[in-house]
Design a protein around this nucleic acid. Structure first.
Lengths: 189, 189, 189, 189
DNA sequence: ATGTAACCGAGACGGTACGTCGCGTCTTTGT
DNA sequence: ACAAAGACGCGACGTACCGTCTCGGTTACAT
C-alpha cells in the first residue's frame, strides 16, 4: 500500500494522491486503507518513512559552517522527486487543515527541527552563534526549503545547499557585533 | 463576491473555501464566479488584494537592521487572521498543483520578493551585506513566514519579526569573515 | 436567425438546438431571439415554415387510394433530413411540456390534420369510407409518421408511403361489413 | 428510487424528471442513481416496469375484431396518468437523442410491437388480413397512441380503443378487394 | 476435522464539490 | 430606437472523492 502511494505520488503528483486512487492502485479496498491509517496524511507520512529518504545523518565537523553544509547537502540528497511530491502533499494537507498542521508539526517537523537544533546547539556551545538565534536559524533553513518546494522557486540542489549554508554561517563571524546603532524605538507589539 | 470570500475564509478556514460555498455566500451563481475568475486560486488572490492587507511600505531608515525590522513588523501587521487563512489556502493550492504554484510564484510572490530585494540591494550598496546573500536572505524571511504560517509554528507577531530581523542582520556585521577554516572537501554535486 | 436554426438542426440535431446555440450561430444576441419569438418551440416552428417543406398539395385523383398515395408521397418528399430533425425537436418539446403540446397541436398539427381530413371527407362523400373512420384514419397516418420519426423505426420513403396508403385504403373496400360477428360484451368503460 | 421516480412523474411531469430531483426525492445521492442506471432514460424505463402497468395480456377471442378491441382496451387500462407522463418523458428523450431512440425502440417498443404482431399474425393465419398489412397496422395502433399521447390529442379511453379497433378491423372485411381501379402511375421513388 | 473468528476485497451508500451548459431576464454600450 | 454583447441567478448535468457501511469469501487458529 505504501509502495502504491509512492508510485502514485511519483506519477500523479500531489493532486493524484487520493485515498481512492491509492486503494485502487494497491489493489486494496478503501476500508483496509482506513483500517491501517486514520487519514490520508498518515498514509503519506508512513509512505515517506517507508521510502527511507528521511533520516539525515548529523555531521560533526567541529564547526558550524562545515556541519551546516554537510547537513544541508544530505537533506537535499534525501529529497528525491517522489519525496518532494509527498512533501508537497503534506504541505497541502497541513495548509488546508489546522489539525493536520498540528499533527505534522508535532510528529514530523519536530524531529527534523530537533536534529538541526542539535547542530546549532553545538555551535552555541562553541560560541559560534548566540543562543537566541537557534530558533530563527532553524526556521531559515526549513522555511527556505519548504517555501521553495511548495512554490517551485529555483532548484533545490547542492548549490542551493551551499549558498544557504554560507548565508546562514555568515552570522557565525559576528560574535561581538561592533557597536550596532540602536534600533529606532518601535512600539513592542 | 470577494467580501463573501473573505467572510468565508474567516469563518470556515481554508477547507471551507469552495467555489460552491463562496457562490452561495455571495448570493451569486457559480457561473458568475467562474465568469470573473478562472479558478479558485484567482478568487482568493483577488480577495487578498481587495482586503488590502497586502502592500507593505518600503522603509528606509538608512541601515539594514532598522529597515528589516520595520519591514517585518509591517508585514506582520498586514497578516491578520483572515489574511493568514487566505494565505494558507493559497499555499494548499500551490502545493497541490504545480501550475498554480507557478502562477502564484510569478504573480504574487514575485512582487513581495522584489520589495524585500530592494531593501537588501540598498544594504548591498551600503556594503552591509554581500550581494550573493540577497537571494538566501529573501528566502529566509519569506520562507520562515510561510513555514510558520502553514504548519502553525509559534506566533507571527512583532516579537517574531524582531527576532527574525535580528538574526538576519547578524549577518550584517560580518563584512570580513576572519579566517574561517576551509570547508571540508565535499563533492560539488 | 431561422437559417441558423435550420443549419444547426441539420448539423447538431435536436439536442443541439438550444437558444444559446441558435443565437451564437446567427450572430445575434439571445435577447433579440426572444424579442422575435417567445420560446424555442416558436423559433423551430417558424424555421420549419421558412424551410418551406411544409405545405402539401392536396391531390384529387377522384378516389381515395390514389389521393392517399399521392398525399403520403408528397408528405414524405417534404420530409427532408433537416425537417425531420426539426420535427423531432418539436416532438421533444411537446412531450416534455403540456403547454407546448397544446400549442403545437392547435397551431401546427391542426392544419395538417385538416388537409388530410379534407381528403378523407371527399372519400366519405364518395361513399368510400364511413364518416366515423375519418378521425382514426388521420391518426393512423400522422401517428405512424411521428411514431416512426421519433423512434427511428424503419425508413420514411415512398415505399412506406405506398404501403401505408394501401393499408389504409384496404378499408375502402369494406362498405358493407358482411356479417361481422358481434363483439364480446366488454364493459363500456 | 423508482418509487420516487413515479411520484415525481405524477407530480411534476416529464419536465420535472431530472436526475437531481429523483435523487433528492429518493433521499439518495446522484452517484447511487448513476450506479444503478446509466442514464435518465433507463431510470424511467425501469420505473415503468416497476409500476407494472406494462404487460398487456394477449387476448384470443378467435377473431381479429374481438382480439383488437380487448387488446386496445387493456392497453388503455394500463395507461394511467403516471404511466402516461413517463411515456411522454421517454418520447422526449427519444426524440432528442437518436441513441436513446434506438435503445427505446429495441428494448421497449419491440416487445409491444411483437405482442400486437402476434395478434395480427393469428389473423393472417385465419385469412382475416393479408400478411403485408401487419406492419402498417402495428404502426397504426401504436402510432396513434403515441401521437395522441405526446400532443395531447383527445382522450385515450375505451371509446378511443373501440373506435380505433373498429377502424383497423374494417380492413378485415376486405379479403378480395373488388376491382380497385389501378393506381395512377407514380414514379416508384 | 471442524467451527469460529479475524481480516480482507469489493463496492454501495449519502454527501459535497467540481466545472460546464442552457435557461429566460436584465443592463450596458454603441450605433 | 433598437440591437450586440453579455452578465446574472438558477438549476441540472455527469464525475470524483470523501469516510462509513455492509457484504461474502478465505484464511488460520482453537476446539
Amino acid at each position: 500500500m505504501l509502495d502504491a502511494t509512492l508510485a502514485l505520488a511519483a506519477e500523479a503528483g500531489p493532486a493524484g494522491l487520493s485515498m481512492e486512487a491509492i486503494a485502487r492502485r494497491a489493489g486494496v479496498s478503501k476500508e483496509t486503507l482506513y483500517r491501517w491509517w486514520p487519514s490520508k496524511i498518515e498514509v503519506i507520512l508512513a509512505a515517506m518513512v517507508e521510502h527511507g529518504q528521511v533520516s539525515i545523518p548529523l555531521p560533526d565537523s567541529g564547526s558550524l559552517p562545515g556541519d551546516l553544509r554537510a547537513f544541508l547537502r544530505s537533506t537535499i540528497d534525501a529529497l528525491d522527486g517522489t519525496t518532494a511530491l509527498l512533501l508537497r502533499a503534506v504541505a497541502a494537507a497541513a495548509a488546508t487543515d489546522q489539525a493536520v498542521a498540528d499533527d505534522v508539526r508535532d510528529r514530523f517537523l519536530r524531529t527534523r527541527r530537533a536534529a538541526l537544533g542539535t547542530l546549532l546547539d553545538r555551535a552555541v556551545a562553541r560560541g559560534e552563534i548566540p543562543d537566541e538565534h537557534t530558533t530563527p536559524l532553524v526556521d531559515f533553513v526549513y522555511g527556505s526549503l519548504w517555501y521553495r518546494l511548495i512554490f517551485g522557486i529555483g532548484r533545490l540542489d547542492h548549490r542551493w545547499a551551499d549558498e544557504t549554508a554560507t548565508a546562514i554561517t555568515a552570522i557565525t563571524a559576528t560574535r561581538q557585533p561592533p557597536e550596532r546603532p540602536p534600533l529606532p524605538p518601535l512600539p513592542p507589539d
